[in-house]
Amino acid sequence: MTNHLGHQIARFFATGAANTIVGLIAIYALMAVGVHYAISNAIGYAIGLSISFFLNRSWTFGINGKIGIEAFHFLILAAVAYAINLSVVALAVEGLGASAYLAQLFGVVSYSVVSFLGMKYLVFVKRGR
């Protein structure tokens, strides 16, 4: 692993930790007041999405200037990663009988892996700047 890749991974996880903490607080708070786990999950991820975009764009992957096409690509990636996340959460809750609280953590892992790979290789790549 190159030093540059190591820094990107470390920054991605630092950004992800902040993003995840904010998202999970929202998810768990909503579930605690009776909101269905799927709706809680969607709201929690929506809250963290803008944090993720701007921090990963500038700090993790070093993209500056006009937002351009990466915002569109980021939203597509987020939708795909979210669909995978929600599928994992639903499978754990509905299929395996896991606690919805524990299942959210499984969803976070799947979302993180898909997100990093997508951001690095599809979204935040320097395109003829």
Rank of each mutant, 00 (worst) to 15 (best):
H4R: 14
L5H: 12
L5M: 09
G6D: 11
R11T: 14
F12W: 02
F12N: 02
A14N: 01
G16N: 01
A17K: 02
N19P: 02
N19G: 07
T20K: 01
I21T: 15
I21L: 14
V22K: 00
G23C: 07
G23F: 02
L24I: 07
L24D: 06
I25Y: 09
A26V: 15
Y28T: 02
M31Q: 12
V35Y: 09
H36F: 15
A38W: 07
S40G: 11
S40R: 04
S40K: 04
I43G: 00
G44V: 14
G44K: 04
A46W: 12
A46F: 13
I47V: 14
S52R: 00
F53C: 06
F54G: 00
T60E: 08
F61K: 00
G62E: 08
N64K: 14
G65M: 05
K66F: 10
K66P: 12
I69L: 15
I69Q: 12
I69T: 14
E70V: 12
A71Y: 07
A71L: 15
H73V: 11
H73Y: 14
I76A: 04
I76G: 04
A81W: 04
A83Q: 06
A83Y: 11
N85R: 04
L86V: 07
S87I: 07
A90N: 07
E94W: 13
E94P: 13
G95W: 07
G95R: 11
L96A: 04
A98L: 14
A98W: 07
S99Q: 01
S99H: 03
S99R: 03
A100P: 09
A100S: 14
Y101G: 05
Y101V: 07
L102Q: 13
L105C: 13
L105P: 11
V108A: 05
V108R: 00
V108C: 04
S110M: 02
S110I: 06
S110D: 00
Y111K: 05
Y111V: 01
Y111R: 07
S112Y: 00
S112A: 05
S112N: 04
V113C: 11
V114L: 06
V114Q: 12
V114K: 07
S115Q: 06
F116L: 01
L117H: 08
L117C: 10
G118V: 01
G118I: 00
K120H: 09
L122V: 14
F124I: 00
K126F: 15
G128K: 12
R129E: 15
